[in-house]
Design a protein around this nucleic acid. Structure first.
Lengths: 116, 116
DNA sequence: GCACATTGCGCAATAA
DNA sequence: GTTATTGCGCAATGTG
């Protein structure tokens, strides 16, 4: 659109009724602009805060995963150690522990082995 | 600061040397303003993207925690079931399993029990 | 046809 | 001295 630089002469009841209605409209728009810009800055700040929140949650979750993984590793080792030393040769409650514990089977459904 | 609205008359070599140097300066500043605003918008977009990345990582980590917790729960149950049925009454490789497995001991240092 | 909201843009102040 | 950033007003445009 052509950036028309103010029409000094009043052609009539167009965009520039010299000072009365025009000024009022300009002032109201200037206020609206300020409101809009304040809101915009708030949103930006909130987004930045959100990033920090998420980073923190993330760190906590990573620690949790680390801890759980360590714990799990320990139990599996203990388990296998016992199983390989036991009389029944790596069978434990009918479960093939070597196979069961070898991988980290994140996808696996353990409910098959679950007791009631 | 007083928002001086252009000095039409040239008082001398001040801020408004009527058109030559002034116009050049204005044009260069206008370009700088555009660059600055583009950069600003990019940053905003990047921050929004960052939020999404973090949300995704978060979801993945939460799933991982869930899976690991489930797996751990299963192993502990299996472990305890065996221990309580075994002849040595809840002793397993010299470790008090009941005590060891009762909690989720996130803080605990398992290295004490670690084999070489 | 309004009225407010959002946006691109230029100006001037001022930070760097 | 220069560019970068920022507050501000204007006008166009979007939205309802």
């Amino acid at each position: 659109m052509p950036r028309q630089g103010r029409t000094p002469k009043k052609d009539g009841p167009e965009s520039g009724e010299d000072s009365d209605e025009y000024r009022k409209r300009r002032d109201r728009n200037n206020l609206a602009v300020k409101r809009s810009r304040v809101k915009s800055k708030q949103k930006t700040q909130e987004t930045l805060s959100r990033v920090n929140e998420l980073k923190n949650e993330n760190t906590i979750l990573e620690e949790k995963v680390k801890t759980l993984t360590k714990e799990l590793g320990f139990l599996k080792e203990l388990f296998l150690a016992h199983a390989s030393n036991s009389a029944d040769k790596s069978k434990f409650e009918g479960v093939d522990l070597q196979k069961l514990l070898q991988d980290n089977s994140s996808e696996e459904d353990f409910s098959l082995y679950k007791r009631e």
